[in-house]
Amino acid sequence: MKHVILFVDYREQFYSSLRVSTGGMDIPKIVDKFNHNGFFCEVIEFSDFDVDRQWAGKFVLYQSSEDRGLYYKSYISDILLYIKEQGGILIPEYQYFHAHENKVYQSLLSSNVDNSIITVPNTIAFGAYEELLSKVSDISFPRVIKLSSGCQSKGVSLVKTKRQCLKKAKRMMSSFNLVDYLRFNYKRLLKKGYSLESLNRKKIVLQSFIPKLPGDYKVLIYNDKVFVLTRSSRPTDFRASGSGIFKFDTDVPDKVLDAANYLQTYYNCPYMSIDIAYEKSNDQCYLIEYQFLMFGTYTLEKSPHYFKKINGAWEIVNETSNLESVFVDSVSSFINVSEEIK
Rank of each mutant, 00 (worst) to 15 (best):
Y105L: 14
E289I: 00
Q106K: 06
L196I: 04
N115D: 08
M272L: 11
S16A: 13
I117T: 02
S153M: 08
N223G: 08
Y75N: 15
S303N: 03
V60L: 03
P28A: 07
F176S: 06
K33Y: 12
S157P: 13
F46Y: 09
I274S: 00
S21R: 15
K280G: 14
V256Q: 00
S21M: 13
L300I: 00
S333F: 05
R163T: 15
T265F: 15
F295Q: 01
C285K: 02
V60G: 03
S148C: 00
V219T: 03
R239Y: 02
S325L: 14
K212P: 15
K212D: 15
D48P: 08
V104M: 07
Q13G: 09
K73E: 14
K202S: 14
P304M: 01
F227T: 06
N336C: 10
S111N: 09
H3T: 11
N185R: 11
K162R: 15
K202W: 12
E279P: 15
L229C: 04
L287V: 03
D26H: 08
P270T: 04
V43Q: 05
V144D: 03
K280F: 15
S111R: 14
L61K: 05
A125L: 10
T22G: 13
S137I: 12
L166M: 04
S65L: 12
E197L: 14
V219A: 00
S153C: 09
Y62W: 06
F292A: 09
M25D: 02
S208P: 11
F327Q: 00
F307C: 05
